[in-house]
Write a protein that binds this DNA or RNA. Structure first.
Lengths: 147, 147
DNA sequence: CTACTAAATGATACCTAGTATCAATATGGT
DNA sequence: ACCATATTGATACTAGGTATCATTTAGTAG
């Protein structure tokens, strides 16, 4: 694997977990290996299927822990179970999800932050967060679907 | 009730359903009354609780029908069951959800459509749809939360 | 009005995704 | 090695929703 600014290793994540006061156990290492190998756009249930020999509860707990520590993003899609992606070091971003294969890309658009400031200024309330997901057919899936 | 451009009545919805080849039954009328009375930000389970004497399946089927006919918007929030809102005649819009009371407002921002065109032009794929939800504390809820 | 056909319904069982409980086990610190 | 605590797995449970299928109801032709 070619290292990149976005590369995240199991060890890095484990260190973050440990510095948050949680133990870097063998079970967590195994879940993390699967998460890192899988990268983006996986569901909790897919981890359960991939990481044999660990209880479902442990895997769900690990996912919750990673979310709490800010290491995963949760995408609540229109249908089906939420999908998770590693939170890369891109900082705040939005998601581009392929409706064909489920691959998730990230993007940033400063115009969005600008729009949110305008919205808040218009008196609708104090903005606590936002979620932006764009559904695409990626170049690989487009031909499969036909017209 | 003061009529407005966004007002939607049970009868109007029932007519739309009928013109889609579905029967305007008594059960559907009762669900629609609850939907219209409730307006925005309700869950399917809330309808089940409000509309006594109808089977759960019927209520879920009616919600599915309304979604298919484009009369409801589905909001898949970060946690909990999806919430539904009447699709008012505002046309395409986005949602502003109060994290305190669940009230949903709609907004439009042409800057978003512009951004999406730029995104598509950058070659990431063919855009099939998008979802934008902004979480706010509405002016009524802000004082309740404190700092 | 009656009969017919298809749509709609309710009860039920079932399913998926996820959480709570709690006894057993593993971990880090001393 | 020992202790306190975190973690784990098995299990039962919950929420939210769907599939099945016998029964009922709505529209329609006579």
């Amino acid at each position: 694997m070619i290292p990149s600014i976005n590369m995240v290793t199991t060890k890095e994540i484990l260190d973050t977990i440990e510095s948050g006061g949680h133990r870097p156990t063998a079970s967590r290492r195994r879940v993390l290996d699967a998460v890192v190998a899988r990268g983006d756009g996986f569901t909790a249930e897919e981890l359960v299927a991939e990481v044999k020999g660990l209880g479902r509860a442990t895997i769900y707990r690990t996912v919750r822990l990673l979310l709490k520590e800010g290491l995963l993003c949760k995408l609540s899609l229109q249908d089906g179970a939420p999908r998770y992606t590693l939170f890369h070091r891109l900082g705040h971003h939005h998601h581009l999800v392929c409706v064909g294969c489920g691959v998730v890309q990230e993007f940033r658009q400063s115009v969005i932050e600008q729009m949110l400031m305008n919205l808040e200024a218009s008196g609708t309330g104090t903005i606590m967060g936002h979620r932006i997901e764009v559904y695409v057919l990626c170049p690989a899936c487009l031909p499969k679907v036909g017209s």
